[in-house]
């Protein structure tokens, strides 16, 4: 009974955190970004009507800062909540994230997709997206490898995602016993909430593999 209450509480915390992140991301994208763009175009109008070259040059500097800020806000919004997840689906959202991942960490990720992609609920998509993100970040932080592979297998009633690297690997028992692997616990919890399954395999010197399996209804 007590365990159920704890699980319920952590489910509630994760879900409300996700909802809050989504709200902030949308506010940044649809509110603040639009206002900043209005200021940017206004500056452009003012600059075009300036006769003093020093003032025009100052306006250009302000425009550059504004352009950089718009770009930063846009990227921050996408990092917080990938809108492509609901518009284009999980594979597209993860492919887009992987492009950003490679240009951030220099790790090349091969993407393989088997079967036909099916529509899955936003909650389940988000659980998978966040879990994949966590697994890929762990590769960048600990695996010491330049390559990774992600395989999507779309079955009739389930989806399996395997993320594999041939990095340095680790001793799962030793790491999980230390209570320092919050990322692994978060992936496990997210998959549990979504009604899925999480498996982790690792061999020192050979690499690590995580498998997410999630039932999907047609």
């Amino acid at each position: 009974m007590e365990l159920n209450a704890i699980n319920g509480a952590s489910t509630y915390i994760i879900q409300s955190q996700d909802e809050e992140i989504k709200r902030i991301a949308l506010e940044l994208h649809e509110g603040i970004s639009q206002n900043l763009f209005s200021v940017f175009t206004g500056l452009e109008v003012l600059q075009n009507n300036m006769t003093n070259p020093d003032m025009a040059s100052y306006a250009q500097e302000l425009k550059d800062i504004m352009s950089r800020t718009i770009q930063e806000v846009r990227l921050l919004s996408v990092e917080l909540y990938p809108t492509t997840l609901t518009t284009l689906g999980l594979t597209a959202a993860l492919s887009s994230y992987i492009k950003l991942y490679t240009s951030t960490f220099g790790i090349i990720v091969e993407i393989i997709s088997n079967g036909k992609e099916k529509t899955i609920s936003e909650g389940k998509s988000m659980a998978l997206f966040r879990s994949c993100q966590e697994a890929l970040i762990n590769i960048a932080k600990y695996a010491d490898t330049a390559n990774a592979k992600i395989v999507f297998t779309w079955n009739q009633d389930s989806l399996t995602i395997e993320i594999e690297d041939i990095g340095k690997g680790f001793n799962i028992e030793a790491v999980t016993a230390g209570n320092s692997c919050k990322g692994i616990a978060a992936m496990k919890e997210r998959m549990f909430i979504a009604g899925g399954n999480f498996q982790l395999f690792s061999t020192i010197g050979k690499g690590t593999k995580v498998i997410f399996t999630l039932p999907i209804s047609c």
Binding site: R68, T104, G106
Partner: peptide, 25 residues
């Protein structure tokens, strides 16, 4: 653009630096 790359390195232990692009700040 304001993006930053690592075009010249020495003592690297892999080729990851070639793909890394960091944002201003």
């Amino acid at each position: 653009s304001t993006d930053i790359k690592w075009p010249f390195v020495a003592g690297n232990c892999n080729e990851k630096y070639k793909f890394i692009t960091v944002r201003y700040g």
